[in-house]
Design a protein around this nucleic acid. Structure first.
Length: 501
RNA sequence: GGGAGGGAAGCUUAAGUGGUUAUAAGCACCGGACUCAUAAUCCGGCGACAAUGGGUUCAAAUCCCAUACCUCCCA
């Protein structure tokens, strides 16, 4: 353990604001939040960025459909994303909106730098264009002459666009991706590397004749297309090029993204940065999708889950706990309310909640709320004490590897160990002081260990333990110490997690 | 159309990468103990012949081939 304070910069993808947030948006934010909270507890200086992509044509189209001015429409949905963060205790340090001046000017600067570097050139392009996809399609892409995605006939379009010499960076990118640790999990790295071998084509990075979006600095007729615009949020939010935050936090320690935008983050984004001569991020961290009944949430199937609504039905921490625990990080995971209820009742309530509550009420009722003075430890006591001594490291290792679900599993097992120990020592017969002394310390450990996952519940636990400060201010490794001493008076016990139904 | 991956107890998973009757965890289910605790807890039991069909081998869940299904990436 070094005493050096390090920095940790984590981003999420920025979300389209063409619709209100769904559960997938929340999942990414909760994962990110858990990761950064862990890093904060480790004493690192953290910057955690999330935000929304407002410049996409998709947003404009959705606004028109809704019969609202684009700005009004976008404001409305952006507000919902901010609200989502607030409700779910997402501890983001900033929230960027790509229509903000601080962003648009950086996008133009990056564009200019790429241009100055000779990486952008003008070219006529002709072909089928699907307005839904905002993309040119080849004949092969079409099914019965229609875009299979949108089921609409594309139009024949002849456009003058600026192209980015992506091909120029083929070798640098191949090298970046062969090194192994740039994209995690490794299967995701392999997918990108395999596609890279097929060769890179230059990329169209502007669109003419649009009304919504950021104008290029070199030609007022052209708007900057999604790539250079959206991805640049990761540095514009830090005040690139001269901002203090940029100097302190860039390069990003991880970009947390969904698997669908892996290519953009693992190939296009590094290429843009290389072209603009900006250092590359350290890691692209890819998570899976939340599915409902085994397939993607879809509007037509009516399986889209609105997390703002969900929070009215279940507690925020139960939802956070469930998503983090039940979904293997990096893989897709199915969401059902039944399993949410099951996890909550069996683990959060019956295991963790019970251990907390039985310990606290026992001390409260039998020792007037005062932690008893321990005697000499017997073998059981020593065994449990040792468990406490290693738990911070055990869970920390998992979190360091982004194994959020496994980390949580370790914590559940620790809590179960507590229940087992308590049961075995039978303090209701013996009034065994060692047992209560160790268990109440285990609760303090649990509070810290669980802080990244269920931050709000854990603060309540902290105050029931009548401890100073906030859990979020504690040091991770102190979760393995017995810092609650004899004669400490605990607060009033109160049920933390309620059983559902 | 090309490529990658997956199938394990009723369900969800972890381990296992050639060797006798496949190692485990949680949920569910059954039984017991206990009563401090939100009928929570603790202990014990139940339970899979490994997607299917072939092949290699003295021996395969583990290697190879084929087929079906699911997922993903690409076109």
């Amino acid at each position: 353990m070094s005493g050096l304070s390090r920095k940790f910069y984590l981003t999420t993808a920025i979300d389209y604001v063409n619709a209100p947030p769904h559960l997938g948006h929340l999942y990414e934010k909760v994962c990110a939040d858990t990761i950064v909270r862990f890093h904060r507890l480790n004493g690192e200086e953290v910057f955690f960025l999330t935000g929304v992509d407002e410049n996409a044509q998709k947003n404009e189209q959705a606004a028109i459909k809704a019969g609202l001015p684009v700005k009004v429409f976008v404001d409305k949905n952006a507000h919902l994303f901010k609200k989502l963060c607030k409700i779910y205790n997402i501890s983001n340090d900033d929230f960027i909106r790509t229509t903000e001046k601080r962003h648009t000017k950086v996008v133009q600067l990056v564009f200019q730098k790429m241009y100055d570097n000779g990486d952008l050139y003008k070219k006529y392009y002709e072909g089928y264009y699907c307005t839904g996809c905002e993309e040119f399609k080849t004949e092969k892409d079409l099914v019965n002459g229609k875009c299979p995605e949108h089921n609409t006939a594309p139009m024949w379009l002849k456009e003058e666009n600026y192209f980015f010499r992506l091909s120029k960076y083929q070798d640098s990118l191949s090298e970046l991706l062969s090194e192994g640790q740039f994209v995690l999990p490794l299967e995701k790295r392999n997918e990108v590397a395999a596609r890279l071998k097929e060769g890179l084509k230059d990329l169209s990075v502007t669109r003419p004749n649009l009304t919504w979006g950021i104008t290029t600095p070199i030609n007022p007729e052209h708007k900057i297309y999604v790539w250079i615009d959206a991805l640049t949020n990761y540095i514009s939010a830090l005040g690139y090029p001269n901002g203090e935050k940029f100097k302190k936090f860039w390069p990003a320690d991880a970009h947390l993204i969904g698997k669908g935008i892996n290519w953009f983050h693992s190939v296009i984004w590094p290429a843009i940065l290389l072209s603009a001569q900006i250092p590359l991020p350290k890691l692209v961290l890819v998570h899976g999708y939340i599915t409902v009944k085994g397939s993607k949430m879809s509007k037509s199937k009516g399986t889209v889950i609105n997390p703002l609504e969900l929070a009215k039905k279940y507690s925020v921490d139960a939802i956070r706990y469930y998503m983090l625990r039940a979904i293997v990080f990096g893989e897709d995971g199915d969401f059902t309310e039944e399993s949410l209820v099951e996890r909550t009742n069996n683990e959060l309530v019956a295991n963790i909640g019970n251990f907390i509550h039985r310990t606290l009420t026992f001390i409260s009722k039998n020792f007037d709320g005062v932690v008893p003075k321990p005697d000499n430890f017997d073998d059981d006591d020593v065994k449990f004490q040792k468990r406490i001594e290693v738990i911070a490291e055990t869970v920390g290792k998992r979190l360091g590897k982004f194994e959020l679900d496994k980390a949580l599993k370790e914590i559940v097992e620790f809590s179960q160990e507590g229940n087992r120990y308590f049961q075995h020592k039978e303090p209701w017969k013996t009034k065994n002081p060692n047992c209560l002394y160790l268990c109440v310390n285990a609760l303090r450990s649990l509070a810290i260990l669980l802080e990244p996952f269920i931050p709000s519940s854990v603060e309540k636990l902290w105050s029931q333990l009548n401890l100073e400060g906030a859990v979020a201010e504690q040091n991770w490794s102190s979760a393995s110490k017995l810092l609650i001493k004899e004669l400490h008076t605990i607060g009033k016990p109160k049920v933390l997690f309620k059983k559902i139904n």
